[in-house]
Computed example of a mutant assay.
Amino acid sequence: MNESGESLKKIYHAVLNFDLRGAKEATKEALEKGIDPLLILNEGSIKALREAGSKFEKGEYFLPEIMVCAEAFQESYRILEPELTRKSERADSLGRIVIGTVVGDMHDIGKNLVKALLSGVGFEVYDLGRDVPIQKFVEKAKEVDADIVAMSALLTVTMQFMGTIIAALRKAGSKAKTIVGGAPVTADFAKNIGADAFAGDALLGVEECKRLVGK
């Protein structure tokens, strides 16, 4: 295995094995070696998160393990984010996306992963965070003239707000396309509330956003 592959493998194993400090240091080392930050993200930390998700589905990992894997991912991403931002600024923007977890929902692991990927491929991403009020989505979409508004939810009681947000965007005259995702969200639900797209996972979400802006 070449030096680049070894570096990516170190990040992968650090995230998968709950090593927060190791994930951070391995990411620094990879950047110092000149490895492309998007490659580090896709083939290092995101690849590890996907494997963690697979282990969760098989019953090999449980929610506490997934949470720590996500923390390790975040440690790696914090090092990558400035480089990914510079990379996207040098490239032509694919479009402006407002993203957030809907009101009442404090879960943001999936949303943060999608944000990382969208920034990496060249979107301008405006992250509203979690527990975002309906009107804040509308105001930010209007402020930045968003091409897309992306909404996430992990709870069945909070995902109902997605339809309210879409209706509020339309009432305010926003032309932004909408995409929804999260564990309880389905393609049928997305269609029923009038969303323009549904993201079954983070990577599909990126492809859908590219489709929505015609790229």
Rank of each mutant, 00 (worst) to 15 (best):
Leu63Gly: 11
Ala195Thr: 01
Asp201Gln: 07
Thr85Asn: 10
Val15His: 10
Val103Gly: 08
Ile134Arg: 05
Ser45Ile: 08
Lys177Arg: 11
Thr156Gly: 13
Glu208Ala: 00
Gly104Glu: 10
Thr158Cys: 06
Ile166His: 00
Pro82Leu: 01
Gly181Tyr: 12
Ile193Gln: 01
Arg78Tyr: 07
Phe161Glu: 08
Glu57Leu: 11
Gly214Gln: 05
His13Arg: 09
Glu89Thr: 05
Ala72Asn: 01
Val103Ala: 14
Leu117Tyr: 06
Ile165Cys: 04
Glu32Lys: 15
Glu75Asp: 09
Asn17Leu: 05
Gly200Trp: 03
Tyr126Trp: 02
Ser45Tyr: 08
Asp127Arg: 00
Ala70Ser: 11
Glu6Gly: 02
Leu16His: 08
Lys87Leu: 15
Ile11Lys: 15
Phe189Ala: 04
Val185Lys: 03
Arg78Lys: 10
Thr164Cys: 02
Thr85Gly: 05
Val121Asp: 12
Ser76Met: 12
Cys209Asp: 03
Leu169Thr: 10
Met151Leu: 12
Ala116Thr: 14
Ala91Met: 04
Leu39Ile: 13
Leu169Glu: 05
Ile179Trp: 07
Lys140Pro: 02
Phe62Met: 11
Phe18Ala: 04
Leu38Trp: 05
Leu212Asp: 03
Pro184Met: 06
Leu117Arg: 07
Glu60Thr: 10
Ala167Lys: 11
Gly100Tyr: 13
Ala91Asp: 06
Ala199Ser: 06
Leu16Gly: 02
Arg21Ser: 13
Val103Asp: 13
Leu16Ser: 04
